[in-house]
């Protein structure tokens, strides 16, 4: 009969995750080198929203902490969205933007843009994400081409090609940096995955890119389910497979490019988050997709919080935190897969 419980479960899950994200954001703003009571955080945000300006304390919250925490949320959401898309399109549970080399491609594209475009702030603000998108899209095509044999995409080849391309592109990025010593330190930190010194402009840019990248997946969640049955079967059930793959991969490249432009290479969020969410909500994208986006945001806000407070006042790049958690997770996935066969 009509599975009414499904609908309420979906609402419950998404409301629960949204509440958890709100809590994580408040905690992210409140905790840090200087602790701010959570009540003050909420009050400062309320004052800023109503325009009834505040003092210096409010400025620290609104201009320094909040954009950084929101950016963490947006980056986590973007990477998780890309992870869901890659895992569905490649029917490969190990796919994520970092492992497929797309992040490295976006990084190289962004670095090339930085090196080529001079120091004009406005030019960089547009040029870097565009470069990152070009790099991400190009890398995706390259990796898929390398892993395809007679039109078939072998899952193992895909991962190998992704890792090989990833290393090559990372090396190229480093090579460019050797000639651009001035910006080397900041770029190296950026490449490690950092969220320091980010502003509301970054939040706005990534919001736009994430929203644009989420349109297709939101409208085509059923097609994503069908893609898991294989390209042939999806086609038999009414999916225009090649075109759908192209626009879904473009969407994924767009959000990865946005994430990499503002925060460099942050690995494993796109891999871990959809997995954890899938274990709880199942594989249907109608729920998996929004739940993963929210969960990805939570994961990175918490990871960034840890990065700031564990060795305070020293900050660890957040990419190191996610890699420390994600590396073992990846191994667990591999081992589990072996056992199941």
């Amino acid at each position: 009969m009509v599975p009414a419980p499904g609908r309420s479960r979906r609402t419950l899950t998404l409301v629960g995750l949204s509440a958890a994200l709100a809590l994580a954001i408040v905690a992210g703003v409140a905790l840090g080198a200087v602790r701010i009571p959570p009540g003050d955080v909420v009050a400062a945000v309320a004052r800023a929203l109503t325009g009834s300006g505040g003092g210096l304390a409010d400025a620290v919250i609104i201009d320094l902490r909040l954009p950084r925490v929101l950016l963490a949320a947006l980056v986590g959401a973007s990477l998780a969205l890309a992870g869901v898309l890659y895992q569905a399109l490649f029917k490969n549970p190990l796919a994520d933007p970092y492992i497929l080399g797309v992040s490295a491609g976006a990084g190289l594209g962004a670095t090339l843009a930085l090196a080529a475009l001079g120091t004009s702030y406005a030019v960089r603000a547009v040029g870097v994400p565009v470069g990152a998108f070009a790099g991400a899209a190009f890398t995706m095509l390259l990796v898929v081409r390398l892993a395809s044999r007679r039109g078939r995409l072998d899952p193992t080849s895909l991962l190998l090609a992704g890792i090989a391309v990833s290393y090559t592109l990372a090396a190229l990025t480093s090579f460019i940096l050797v000639f651009d010593r001035e910006s080397m330190t900041s770029v190296v930190f950026w490449m490690m995955g950092g969220l320091q010194n980010r502003s509301w402009e970054h939040v706005a840019m990534l919001s736009v890119m994430l929203a644009a990248g989420a349109v297709v997946p939101a409208l085509y969640h059923r097609e994503l389910d069908l893609m898991l049955l294989g390209d042939d079967r999806a086609g038999q059930l009414g999916v225009r497979v090649e075109r759908f793959k192209l626009i879904a991969l473009a969407s994924a490249s767009l959000v990865v490019a946005g994430a990499v432009s503002v925060s460099g290479l942050i690995g494993f969020v796109g891999l871990m988050t959809p997995h954890m969410v899938r274990l709880v909500v199942g594989p249907r994208h109608r729920l998996l997709l929004p739940a993963s986006v929210l969960a990805g945001a939570i994961v990175l806000v918490v990871a960034d919080l840890l990065a700031r407070v564990v060795l305070a006042p020293v900050e660890i790049p957040v990419g190191i935190v996610t890699a420390l958690a994600g590396g073992p997770f990846f191994v667990w996935l591999l081992v589990r897969k072996e056992h199941r066969r």
């Binding site: 029917k91 389910d225 898991l228 049955l229 059930l237 009414g238 999916v239 899938r278 594989p283 249907r284």
Partner: peptide, 19 residues
């Protein structure tokens, strides 16, 4: 038929309604 993801049988059949 590949079935590597944990759809329920009913969800699997419902996919036939897609077109």
């Amino acid at each position: 038929q590949v079935a590597s993801f944990a759809f329920t049988a009913r969800a699997f059949v419902e996919m036939g309604r897609n077109p």
